[in-house]
Structure formats: C-alpha cells, structure tokens
Design a protein around this nucleic acid. Structure first.
Lengths: 287, 287
DNA sequence: ATCACTTACGGGTGACGTAAAAATC
DNA sequence: GATTTTTACGTCACCCGTAAGTGAT
C-alpha cells in the first residue's frame, strides 16, 4: 500500500521540479526525499523518473502517478474538512430569528439544555430563514407564524407585545393602563434600535408617517433615551429582560392593535427532531 | 496528514464491526488496531466511535469518515493498477494481424529490434484491427492495404503470393511454372489451416464451390497433408519459413489471379511513432 | 565552485506484539 | 468462561538527518 506521505512527496516533486526544492517545501532533508522516491518506485515496481547523474525528471508513468497522487491528496484534504465540519455541526445549534427578543432569550436557554454545545444566532427575514433551514444552515428558526409542511416541525414558543415608551410628561402617558392604537403616535419621531426584524414591517405599515432615529448599539441607544424626551418602543419581553437597567423616567403604553402582538414559533427540519428533543419537550411542557 | 494504513484500518473496522475481526483481516494484533483508531480520532480531533466498555461502533462522523476512507483506498488501488498497466504498455508492443504469415515473421524481428520488450500478437478482421488500434489496444496493425488518415502512419511491409499445394500426380502439377487461376481448382476439396485471416475472404470469393477441411493445429495439419493426396495451400512466405520441415511430395502451383497476391502495410497511431521508430526505419531501408 | 542526486551511517520515534486488566455477554 | 476493548511495556524497524561522494553546469 502506498502511504500518503509518499504521495505528497511525489506531488511536491512534480510541483517543484527538483528534489532539493521539494525537500525545502516539505521541510525534510533532500536525501530523505530521494529515498522516498526510490521507495515509491520500488513499491510500484515501476520506473517513475528519468535520471541523469544530477537531474531527475518524471517520465510518462511518473506524470500519471503524480496526477493520481494529487487527486488522492485532494480527497484526503476533503475528507478531513468534511469530517471536522460534520462533527462541528453535531455540537452546534444554529438558530435563525425573525425578531430580536427571542434572540435575546433563547441562546441562554439552549446553552442550559445543551451544555458544551455552541449556539449560533442570526437575525434574518422569514424567507431567508426558511431557505437557510432547508439548506441546513440553521438547526432551528423562529418565525412569527406557524408553518404546515411535511418536512418541517413547528412548536409554539411564546408571544411578545409592543408598547410605546414615553416620558411621564407625554400626553399619552396617562393611557398606560388602557393602551393606545399605533395611529395615536403616527407622525412622531422615535428613537429605535437598529435591527428589529419582523417588527420593521409592522412599524412601516402602522406608522407610515413617523420618523425613526436608528442606533444599533444598545448601550448608546440607552444613553440617548435617558437624555431625551423622544418616544421609543418596548415590549413585554424587553421590559422584563432589562428591568434592572431600566430608565425610571419612562412610561410603557401598551398598543391596542392586534398587530402589536406577535406569536413566535420554533420551526425545524423533522430530520433534526432528535437533536432538538430536549428543547421541544421543554416548550411543550410550558404550553 | 492521515496515513493510508489508518484509512485501511478504519474501512476494515467498518466492514467487520469489531476490532478483533478487523485485526484478523488486517493481519495485525488487536491492540495495534485499537491504537490506530485512537490515533485517527486524535489526528482528526473528532470522536469517530461510540464506545462502551467492551464494544465500539462508528458514530455518524465515523460513518462519514469510513466512506471517505473507502473512496480514497479505491483511488489508491486504481492508481497502482493504472500506473503499472501504463508502465507495462511502455514495454509491450501489441501487434494485430490480418493474416497469419506476417504474424509468423514479425514477432521475432520485433524482438530483435526491441529486446526485453514483450510483444503480443492477435489475428483479427481488418475492422477490428482498426478499432483496436484507435483504442490503443494495438501498438501497430498489419493490413492488406494502405490507409490514408491524419492520425495514422502507414508503411509498406511486404507481399505474399498464394499457391496451390498438390501431389505430383495431380493433373495441374505440371503448371508449377506457369501457374493456374483459382477457377482451375474450384469445386475441389482442400486441406486448410484453421484461421487464415484475410485469405478467408479471397478464398470464398474465388473458390465458391470448393470444400475445405479445417485443422487449426499446424502439426496435425502437417501429418494429415503427408498422408493425403488432397490439395492445399501454400504461399511464398510459408514455403520459405517451413522449407526445412517441408513434405517433399508436394508441388506448389502459383495462382495467376491478381487476388492471389497481398501487399501488407504496417499501420500505427502517429502518437506512437517514436516507440516504433527503429522498426519503421528498418522497413524503410528495405523498401 | 555550486548544484543536484545518491549512498552510508547513526539515532530516535513510533508502530508492533505480548501480557495483563476491566468489563460485558 | 469467552469476547472485546484498553493500557502497559519492551523491542525492533523504519525514517530521518548529517556527512560524504559523484557527476554536471
């Protein structure tokens, strides 16, 4: 059997033309490479080189062998990358989100269910998420609606309700219990986090005349909110998550339109059910 | 880099299911195989097996690796056979003939021009010969006519002239100097060697009413001829080649038809000109 | 003189086999 | 008790690097 290091030596010689040059590339001594080539010829029982006293060159048989060597080495390289990447995928849960708040909550929960398992997050449009799921780029995606598909599993995760965030002096602050419709604030200027996923669509639809000042860095956004009287947004989820660091000077006015509530669903390839079993069981037990 | 022996060990384990069985197949000790598998996992940095205290099984990563291992091993096997067969083809001249007499003469001549080079012979129809030549199954073929083709070289080799072989008492024996046409013997029964190549066509065309008793073994044929008065065939070439062992009781009557003479041409792929140079030079110098 | 390859020689690594242990069937 | 895997240990082979030699440019 021809060992891989001999194949690599042959390919290197073919690439570099002389033993000395190839030996430098291979980080071995030149006599060692010379012996390797002799051994290769001996194992195959075939002359691979035309030799003059101070020059070696592949003959036609050697050229053929070198071309095989290259393909075998490529396949070996492909094998290692494929095996390693497959292994990584076993220890990674990649989740795609349509909105920021599940993205804030879920990774920590997954980490506790799957300790030692990397979990990657991505915020995307729902079409991109579904495409990525089918291409196995996501182990699971979180959508704002259930799906019905033979290949896909679907499990309700939870809901999120949108509020306006206003200073106490704001005229609408008094509606903090009964709520207001989106239309009550259309035309105002809002402070807003950068990427809000699916909420972007709802905002455009329900507040067509409003202006938005975007700040993608959450710390900066918080600083700005603290020093500003401009209204902003908050949801039941973000209010809960950031209770400790919350600006006391803000009133959260719930929005009464049905579009202000989103129900989230975890969607996954049924192939991956086993991998997600613990997580799905947890969700079922909570609903 | 993953060495070939590790790949073979992995493939063997996949095939046999236990280290012990695989180690028997591989002719190594079972602990050695155990270490090989550990080393493979270590080199890839990946778990390939589910292990219980006295059982090992490939996990999904291991299955993937084993399948790569098989393809790489197959390619390595393919490499050795391809290289060896290519090498053999360099040291072999395979010649296809359309008639027996060049096949009797040429191999010895080639051996003297190419000592240490195997030379294979085959008797075939001219269509088969041309097909085989283009498929590189023949280094050279001998046809009864020249060819004109951009890819093919062609060199006149020599001619052969057909005679009837009759006992002295035969009525036509007296024509041994002036010759007779084929038609003079049509309808008679002949003794004939088994495979006479292109001559078969000529015989069928020019002696449509004759009968032929075939004997493919030349020694047996000779015995039969010696004890028989039936006519047969001989050519200038066979008369010359077998002069020593010739039956003194035979007269050779030349045949006057133009079809009784064949001119032979060596045809080869121009690709192979270098390989046949010596031989072609010899033929040119003789014509 | 430099370069390129081969041969000779000594040393260290690593792969092997034997032996033994642990655990399962 | 038989099987299967792992660990421990000693041995030997093989591959490597250094050094030296040959021949060509």
């Amino acid at each position: 059997m021809i060992e891989m290091n001999l194949l690599e030596a042959l390919a290197a010689f073919d690439a570099y033309g002389t033993l000395s040059a190839a030996s430098v590339y291979l980080h071995i001594s030149q006599p060692a490479l010379s012996r390797s080539m002799q051994k290769l010829e001996e194992e195959l029982g075939v002359k691979l080189f035309e030799r003059t006293k101070n020059r070696m060159a592949l003959n036609s048989t050697g050229k053929l062998a070198a071309s095989y060597a290259r393909t075998i080495l490529n396949m070996e390289k492909e094998m290692t990358t494929a095996v390693i990447s497959h292994n990584r995928s076993l220890h990674t849960i990649s989740v795609g989100y349509c909105a920021p708040s599940p993205r804030m909550e879920i990774p920590n929960m997954l980490s506790s269910f799957y300790p030692g398992t990397a979990n990657l997050s991505d915020l995307q449009s729902e079409e991109e998420l579904l495409k990525g799921l089918r291409q196995n780029r996501y182990t699971m995606i979180v959508l704002s609606h259930p799906v019905d598909d033979a290949e896909l599993g679907c499990q309700y995760y939870g809901s999120e309700h949108m509020h306006f965030s206003v200073v106490p002096a704001h005229p609408l602050a008094v509606y903090k219990d009964q709520g207001v419709p989106f239309s009550a604030m259309d035309g105002e200027t809002f402070l807003q986090a950068g990427n809000i996923g699916i909420w972007e669509n709802i905002k455009k639809q329900k507040l067509p005349h409003a202006n938005f000042i975007l700040e993608s860095d959450l710390n900066s956004l918080n600083t700005i909110i603290n020093s500003s009287t401009l209204p902003g947004f908050a949801t039941d989820v973000t209010i809960r998550l950031f209770r400790s660091q919350q600006n006391k000077n803000r009133i959260f006015v719930p929005i009464t339109d049905p579009e202000a509530t989103i129900r989230f669903y975890c969607v996954y390839l049924k192939n991956n059910t086993a991998k997600l079993q613990k997580w799905l069981d947890y969700l079922k037990s909570n609903s």
